[in-house]
Amino acid sequence: MTGATIVPPDVEAYLAAVREELADVPAAERDDLLAEVEASLAEAAEESGRPLAATLGSPHDFAAELRNAAGLHATPATARAPSELGRRVRLVAGRIAGHPRVAALRRLASELAPIWWVARAYLAVGLVAVAVDAGWSARYAVVPRLGSAEFGLAAIAAAVVVSVWLGTRARRRGSRVPRVALGANLALAAAAIPVALAVADTRAYDALVASAYSPARVVAQPQPGLVYEGRPVANVYPYSRDGRLLHDVLLYDGAGRPLEIESSSELDTNRRGVRTTGGRPLYHVFPIRYFEPGTRRVARPSAGPPIELPVVRTPPLRPRGK
């Protein structure tokens, strides 16, 4: 509480003597009392410049008068236990608050307070949104949909106004912070975590919704095997221009890569596998045909998908026939 003042040695000595005289007093009350005395004595000594004992009397007499005036000769048992802890806490808090570094931090905090006023308003609205499980706006990712995104924005604006008003009012009232206000501020600060988590969650969901509507834009891991528009292709049916289904057609892309279907379909035991002379299976031969279960016979070799082939008018590149 005395901050950075260097207490003159004779004041310290005097105080130590007084403290000893009050050794029987509960530590909390004694500390409070002597803290007050210390500050005042330091100032008195500065002003008068005379030795303390001359102005104040002996430490013994001083302690006796102090005890009397402070009502300390009342039995310590009457001190209410809860208030003892409260006094202790206040004393420690007072000492911490008095430290010059802390004082500098408090001034800085005071200057940054308006930022906190805005932040706490947002957190308050966010907390309400989390509590009622309101969704988050798709357009403005951090704005809760309280009914609508617009209403959420309006709620945040109103909360900011209230918060700033409270902040400036507290400033005018002076440096004392009521416990309730401090608790509320701390609670809102703690609310930052659940609100942040809730906002983050929604963003992932929004990304998912967006990707479901435009799968082509999703840059997913390249899918193995033949894929068209994001979906794996299980079979290809090549038709000639005169409407005949072609068989055992090998497909390659422009770079010479075989357009193989995903090879896990090999697991289909009824599949008519196509092989080279060496016995190597080929997965880019279409259309893939399936045997009747238990046989080695394809029931309808020319079965195809339900399509209506367009009639090709463009003249052929070369005469018909292979």
């Binding site: 509480m1 009350e29 009392l33 104040l56 008068e65 102090l66 608050a97 008095g98």
Partner: peptide, 29 residues
């Protein structure tokens, strides 16, 4: 002096006075 300080503390404890610390740039708090 002791009477005044003791009285201040006693009045504070009984709730007749409230107290707060004023930080100051120069000198003690």
């Amino acid at each position: 002096d002791a009477s005044v300080y003791g009285t201040l503390r006693r009045l504070y404890r009984s709730g007749a006075l409230t107290s707060y610390v004023m930080p100051s740039d120069e000198g003690p708090h």
